[in-house]
Each structure stands twice: as C-alpha cells, then as structure tokens.
C-alpha cells in the first residue's frame, strides 16, 4: 500500500514553472480595475486621507500616467507598474533577514513574518513597487469581513508588494497535483489579470513556449522596464503600436 502510494507520487510531478506577465500598453485604457481588484484580493489596507497625503498609500499595481507634448498637441501614455519579479532583483540581496528572496518558481517572494522593516529593499527597487505599512492597518467594522482569508494581513512595520497572487498560484498547483495533471495556460490568473477588461494584462508560464505570455514576450513591441539596469524583469511591456506605421504614411 505505502510503496504504491509512494510510486504514485513519484510518477506525477508538476512541471517547474517560470511565471511572468505581459502588459500591453496598447490595450491598457487606464480604467484602474486592476488596482481595485488587487486591493480586494490581497487585503491591501486603505490608509485614509491623512496618511495618503503623507505618501503612504499602497497600490501594488499602479497605472503610471505620462504626458508627452504640450496642449493641444498632447498625448498620454499609461504604464501599469507592478512588481517586475526580477530574476536579478536588487531588492532581494539587500534584505538582512531573507524576507525578500527568490523562490523556486522565479517569483520574488516577500515573507512578511521575516520582515523587520529596514525598508532597504524599497530603496533598492528601481521600480518603486514596494509598499510599507507605516501605520497599523485598520478596517472599520464590518469592512474587516471583506478580508480574503487566503492572504495574511500585514501589520505595522512590514514591507509588502505584489506577489502575482501567490495564493491563487498555490491553489491551482494543489488542484493540479491532486488531479495529476499539468497546469493549463490561463487556467487561473492573478486578480489584476482576471479583471482587466481590455486584456492588457496576460499572465502565464514563460518557460512554456505555447503560453500566451511567452509568445507575447517575443513580440516586436516587447520591452522591459528600465532594461539597462540588468534586473531581468519577468514583466514584459508591449509598447504602444502606431497606427501610422501600419498606414505607411
């Protein structure tokens, strides 16, 4: 009985994944659905006006808005920025307590329990996508009932950041293992990807050549954020296309 079980377990092994994301700036319309979806999924605290005014608002994913030109010949570029899950992450090496480290799936994991709040990682992160609990987060009752039981609530003095919704990744993996099958592309998505109405965000396994995300990563429009820093981000940005290119004018 027991050896058979062992054998069974050996027989099935989940393929190792390399999670990544593609962000299509041509599709993104700045609707901010991802921002609120992320708040709802990950128990991100609402800090309130006073703290927000002091620069303590937390949005794991934010939509950066950049103007180009001046009125009336003006354009805007939206650029959703979330943790880039760098392979050479500048934030990881500086953490004295291994609160920030690279897990086996290439994710830049943040272990809240280990964090003592040096905030070094946030300084080191060139994408500025680490958020710190400057005050103890509070939810006016009964807003606390909205909290997702799958995600730990962070207390004061802890750094937090986008996890690619690791709770969803784990749930999907457990399910797949239970059913003895490999994960399918698009089987599950982080909260931001799931709600993005324009499908500007695409999530998947970069090591799977057939996945949407790995195909998008090979696009002509593909670029990385601050590529010259050599951080090897796993988020690919698909730059905005130009209508004029295609019209040859």
């Amino acid at each position: 009985m027991a050896p058979a079980k062992e054998q069974n377990q050996k027989a099935f092994r989940l393929k190792r994944r390399n999670w990544g994301m593609a962000v299509d700036e041509d599709r993104c319309t700045g609707c901010e659905a991802c921002v609120v979806a992320c708040h709802a999924e990950n128990n991100i605290a609402t800090v309130g006006e006073e703290q927000a005014a002091r620069g303590r608002a937390m949005h794991w994913i934010r939509i950066e808005r950049y103007y180009e030109g001046t009125f009336p010949d003006i354009k805007v570029k939206y650029q959703p920025v979330l943790c880039q899950q760098c392979d050479n992450a500048p934030c990881e090496a500086v953490c004295p307590t291994y609160a920030s480290y690279h897990n086996a799936e290439g994710l830049n994991a943040q272990i809240y329990n280990r964090c003592i709040g040096t905030r070094y990682c946030a300084n080191a992160c060139p994408y500025e996508d680490r958020y710190f609990n400057f005050v103890n987060p509070a939810w006016d009752e009964p807003l606390n009932l909205q909290l997702n039981p799958d995600v730990s609530v962070r207390s004061v003095g802890i750094m937090e950041k986008c996890t690619f919704c690791i709770q969803r990744i784990r749930a999907a993996e457990i399910n797949a293992e239970k059913e003895k099958r490999q994960l399918k592309d698009g089987e599950f998505n982080p909260a931001c990807v799931q709600s993005c109405p324009t499908e500007a965000l695409v999530f998947g396994d970069l090591d799977d050549p057939e996945s949407r995300v790995s195909r998008l990563a090979k696009s002509n429009r593909a670029a990385k954020l601050l590529p010259d820093l050599g951080t090897k981000p796993k988020v690919t940005y698909l730059r905005r296309g130009s209508w004029y290119d295609e019209q040859n004018t």
Binding site: N88, H102, K232
Partner: peptide
C-alpha cells in the same frame, strides 16, 4: 545551511 537565492547571486 539555509540556502535561499537572492538577487541572482
């Protein structure tokens, strides 16, 4: 003893 990858090192 506690091998964790950080920063690609």
């Amino acid at each position: 003893a506690y091998p964790l990858m950080t920063g690609g090192m």
